[in-house]
Nucleic acid binder design. Structure first.
Lengths: 234, 234
DNA sequence: GCAAAAGTGTTACGAATACACCCATGA
DNA sequence: TCATGGGTGTATTCGTAACACTTTTGC
């Protein structure tokens, strides 16, 4: 029977929608596009597209993200599937949501103007089409959880970053203030940050040390079953 | 344009697979069925079916679960979508996995013999078809996380249960030993267990007090933003 | 010399852990 | 009366939270 098909089953559209989180060194933002086709033309929407026959869900999400933003090789993780019957008024469609994390400033050229995409502060989101708002809320919840237990925050920063920058990022993600000393102790305590011998002098006269995420060390620790905590304190 | 269709997009099969966890007061188990059609006929499989045009994902999971096991009104939560291109050799299919939690003994009649389903200890699973093993692993991970922060463990027990039973459950979920005194303090400390005035004398001469989960109190606490911890100690 | 951001240590409190004995009952 | 499982309290340890001053440097 292999090679035949399942008979008499409904075939439907599978969409993919990407919640793209970005950080501009001060605020957590979301990349949205003006939808240029009906329905809801002109409204804001997540980056989306349809799954094709010969690509996996992960591949499809990457393809769509690349096509709509020029972005490649960025952190992308499946959130969950959304499947209400009437979620898309045009045709029955289920959507698998993915979320992506990028450093806005390192990718500003790729996300060119002609993509008609804009960054919105997560505190000032416009109305979104369909169930996209629900997706965003779920993604933010997931990001908050993930960033407290896995080193995904670094995806939102350039390769080399300072501890004050990292702290600002966590403060943006959790929308809270964090004590500097406790934050540093915790982060350095994970022992997966490598101090470089360079200083970042953009933001202060004294300058702040640049660090890198040390992924080898991180994987070592994971294999040993250590579970790190990046959770903000206070 | 509303009412028209998205043109030229692939339509595909969307399957649903249910990872059904059960607890028999001593072990955490999984309900599997012998697949009675090709391919992989005769091998063990999760409970599955296909999404139809006019039902949501959640509804579909409920329907499939009911059809295959007779179970109704049980805890069911989406895990995630699985979408490798070749995951089903018959035809391109993506599958959305759900996991369910039930008390085995309260449902033994419903899950009748004629469903050709059997319970397997999570420590002795047979080989599963397709990517079902991956789904099971992901579900167990999710269950472990969920049960430490949300009151889902109670779904695996009868409505009234004793603290020793609850402890056995947590020990089964986390495959670990837990100190009795610490466990009780933690569980009672959540303040969402209501002691009944009945004792369960099945397992001991002295008898153990029966408790109920107090969902009203739980929701109150949630609204106040308290976050409870059901995590096992030691 | 002063403004502005970077960097550093210690104390106090509360939560998690480890641990051992008494209680009630049926056989 | 004894075997079996149910139930209880405390001391110690460790992690988290709170908190303020010094350093560097460009202007």
């Amino acid at each position: 029977m292999i090679g035949s098909q399942y008979k008499d089953q409904d075939h439907l559209l599978v969409a993919l929608d990407c919640i793209i989180f970005g950080f501009d060194r001060s605020e957590l933002k979301l990349l949205l596009i003006k939808r240029d086709f009906e329905p809801e033309k002109g409204k804001w929407s997540l980056m989306g597209g349809f799954l094709t026959q010969h690509e996996s869900l992960d591949e499809s999400a990457e393809r769509i993200l690349h096509k709509l933003t020029g972005l490649e090789n960025i952190y992308l993780e499946q959130l969950q599937a959304f499947g209400e019957v009437d979620r898309d008024p045009v045709e029955r469609t289920i959507s698998v949501a993915y979320y992506a994390l990028i450093d806005i400033l390192s990718h500003s050229e790729e996300i060119a103007e002609d993509y008609s995409a804009s960054w919105f502060s997560i505190h000032e989101l416009p109305e979104l089409i369909f169930d996209h708002r629900q997706m965003v809320d779920a993604a933010l919840k997931r990001l908050r959880h993930k960033a407290s237990t896995h080193p995904v925050g670094f995806e939102l920063l350039p390769e080399k970053f300072t501890l004050p920058e990292l702290q600002k990022l966590y403060e943006a993600i959790y929308d809270t203030q964090i004590d500097k000393r406790n934050f540093r102790r915790r982060m350095l305590g994970t022992d997966v940050l490598r101090k470089t011998n360079q200083k970042q002098k953009k933001f202060s006269k004294k300058g702040a040390w640049l660090y890198e995420f040390d992924s080898e060390k991180y994987f070592e620790k994971m294999e040993q079953g250590d579970n790190l905590v990046f959770k903000p304190l206070n």
